[in-house]
Amino acid sequence: MTQRDIKNWLNPRLQMADKQLHQTDKKPLKGNDPFFLGIDLGTCNIVSMVIDKEANPIATRVDQADVVRDGIVWDFFGATQIVRKQLESLQQQLGVELTKASTSYPPGTEPRISVNVLEATGLEVTSVIDEPSAVAQMLHLKNAAVVDIGGGTTGVAVIKNGEVIYSGDEATGGHHVSLTLAGNLKVPVEEAELTKKQQGKKIWPVVRPVFEKMAAIVQEHLTPFDVDEIYLSGGSCALPGVAELFSQLFPKQRVILPTLPIFITPLAIATYGMDKSCS
């Protein structure tokens, strides 16, 4: 399969998902139109995305959430409530019943954790895959690494000859950035989270050491491998300075950061579910 282009294939779909974020106008689907739901249970956000047979997002929901920490669902009830709310909103908008979904998990954690949340809402989980591997398969990567920096973890997948040959994960992510910022500013973590989103460039010098730690984690995972490219994904990558830091620390690889990285993993999850259903 031909590698999918970031500029012409991925970025337009991510922008499409962003535009749909606050749209609730009814857009009924025809009964025979295939669609696929992917749900990303993140540390800071839960994202649900519905795509069509061309992997174009047709509806997206995002809710801030503190129900997952370091890849573990610590607030099971809260997670199921958010997923149920998103399902109801999507069903109302699209005029269809959502009964099946795909989901993901950080490498090295138990896949059943995410599956249990979705099943508790009444969904049938048709496929589950670790987050960086989902991105790698969506983009049809050949010789590359995917670095997924989520809210609680940094995941790495290595792809050789189009196959994922290694995946690993460490418990450092965007939440740890917020904790560092909260300590520096002497404010609650919730306030630090908002400051991080609103003043990313200004606070970069304070949080850079946390991202340097993430980069060191990635270097350790990638030491045994020779890859040409590193693809960054996950909402935490949106902070100004992240892509430049990785480019400096990985001079032998081309570092690629798509637009709106918060939507990469849910799109990849839904696309993986679509591919599995067609195989």
Rank of each mutant, 00 (worst) to 15 (best):
E193L: 02
K7F: 06
Q15A: 13
T154Q: 08
K213C: 09
A101R: 11
E163H: 13
N11C: 06
V207I: 15
L98G: 03
M214I: 15
A134T: 03
L123K: 03
I149M: 09
A192V: 10
R84W: 00
G235E: 05
P209H: 09
V164A: 01
A144Q: 04
A270H: 01
D70A: 15
D228T: 12
A270G: 07
D33S: 15
H140A: 15
M274L: 14
P28T: 13
H140T: 10
R112C: 05
T60C: 15
D228M: 09
K276P: 04
K196H: 06
S114T: 11
I6W: 01
F35R: 03
S236F: 06
V187R: 03
T80D: 06
V187M: 14
S104P: 08
L245V: 14
N143C: 09
P106S: 03
I46P: 06
D33Y: 11
M49E: 02
R112M: 12
E97N: 09
E97G: 13
I159C: 12
E244Y: 03
K7W: 00
K26H: 10
E191Y: 05
D275A: 14
P188Q: 11
V255H: 03
V255E: 02
H22N: 15
K142Y: 01
G183M: 08
P205T: 13
L179C: 10
M214H: 01
L260E: 00
V158K: 02
Q91K: 12
I113N: 09
T259N: 12
V50G: 04
T2D: 08
Q91G: 12
N45P: 13
S127K: 07
E131H: 09
N161R: 08
S277H: 04
I129T: 02
N143Y: 00
P240G: 13
A243I: 08
N56E: 08
E124T: 15
K197S: 09
I159Y: 00
Q198N: 13
M49I: 14
Y272E: 02
K26V: 13
V67W: 08
K30G: 14
I203P: 00
N116C: 09
R13H: 07
V128E: 00
L87F: 10
G155M: 04
V125H: 03
M16E: 07
K85F: 01
D226E: 15
N45R: 08
D33G: 05
S247A: 15
D148I: 04
S114L: 07
V125I: 12
Q3T: 15
G31F: 10
S167K: 07
E212F: 13
H22F: 13
I6G: 11
